[in-house]
Design a protein around this nucleic acid. Structure first.
Lengths: 224, 224
DNA sequence: CAGTGGTCTAGACCACGTG
DNA sequence: ACGTGGTCTAGACCACTGC
């Protein structure tokens, strides 16, 4: 049994409801139990996750219904390699033993050269229009060797979230001079800068990142 | 059995881990099962939620551990009446049959005076320092009559989230002239404006709100 | 080998909504 | 009266860790 049954069921139902109308009722849990040859608790776990992610909603004593498509939970504060056909362009990548002091502090590393830091800077665009510039500072010792040379894995913060917690701060700023031309933003135009820190479950910080977001409405949106 | 057993267990464990150190291991699920006289699935459900909320984390074959206190999930994009000793000051409250057209559109109501709209504007402060100004537009017919005159219930968006989905957009702007003096922000200083729409499970929008946030770092922070 | 979390089963009772 | 989701039980097997 490679993938757990509840995940198979979840994926199956996720497929099936794509072809259904909003607010249409789906089969009851007991019917699914029989059709999918699973126990009710297993079916419920699959449904629980789909509800949690916003694809379904339940009404007690009535049934389980397909959500309006626009209501799926999403968080676009973090770049998403999967869906939204973004284009990524790395403009800097190196490994250093010291970076700016404030960043060293946030990552809780010293200048003793015991731990190296990966720095990467990239431009995220859509339809050839630059949307944001992201700077990453990653403590190398926390990263799997095998991911070190795969940018897409290394810089996809979503992949770290299973075992980490991310705290983000949003700050109104103006664009840094060095990035103004790349983002095509006037130097005094207000933008939003996002600063994030990822910590592992023990609370140790290991990734610091910053993103400078083009002031286009649609970019920064979060649904929950 | 007023509150479900899994919630009682969840609350109990939530209490108990307050007095524990970060990364300390808690009792195993089977031990809890016996101590709390519950089945394993019930104990797991309680733990599942505490893990989901960031209070605990699990390591397979090892145990369940107390998270670093700073890692609890929180979302301060929405004002929180509970924790952070914010002070609220209502500066406007009325019920109207028409508001600005763009807001009518977002709430999907017409000018036919069939549905009235509650408008409320308030200042949120901490330590006597204004942090943000929030404007609410609420379609009255969606609100319980009994909450209509309780501002704290009416304007606590967290209370709606159980049965709703909220989509928020973050925009870099400057402060509106009429609010500059209240927020004590210079008229050309960059701030972040948050625009939110709450929809019920059927996808029908019923609350539109906007908040103008003082450019102080700590205000807008989100952990997940 | 004993203990852990991850998954799964096949039932059960409840409160509530609808015909 | 029947069907729904919400809760709960008392087991079970698995893969893995640490001693």
């Amino acid at each position: 049994m490679e993938t757990p049954k509840y995940l198979q069921i979840k994926n199956l139902i996720h497929e099936e409801i794509q072809h259904m109308a909003s607010n249409e009722v789906i089969e009851s849990e007991r019917v699914l139990t029989k059709r999918l040859n699973a126990s009710r608790m297993t079916v419920r776990r699959a449904l629980d996750e789909l509800v949690e992610e916003g694809f379904l909603y339940r009404e007690k004593n009535k049934g389980t219904f397909v959500s309006d498509k626009s209501l799926n939970k999403k968080n676009t504060l973090v770049s998403d390699t999967e869906n939204n056909n973004s284009e990524f362009h790395i403009i800097n990548f190196d490994v250093k033993y010291s970076v700016k002091e404030d960043i060293m502090k946030k990552l809780n590393v010293g200048f003793d050269k015991t731990s190296s830091i990966i720095r990467a800077i990239r431009v995220v665009s859509r339809n050839n229009k630059p949307e944001k510039i992201e700077e990453f500072y990653i403590v190398r010792s926390f990263i799997d060797e095998k991911n070190l040379n795969k940018f897409d894995k290394l810089l996809d913060l979503n992949l770290y979230l299973k075992n980490s917690t991310m705290t983000q701060k949003l700050m109104p700023t103006t664009v840094p001079a060095k990035y103004a031309s790349i983002l095509k933003v006037a130097i005094d135009e207000p933008i939003i800068t996002i600063e994030g820190i990822l910590r592992n479950n023990s609370g140790i910080p290991y990734i610091y990142y910053r993103s400078y977001n083009h002031p286009r409405n649609e970019i920064i949106e979060i649904t929950f």
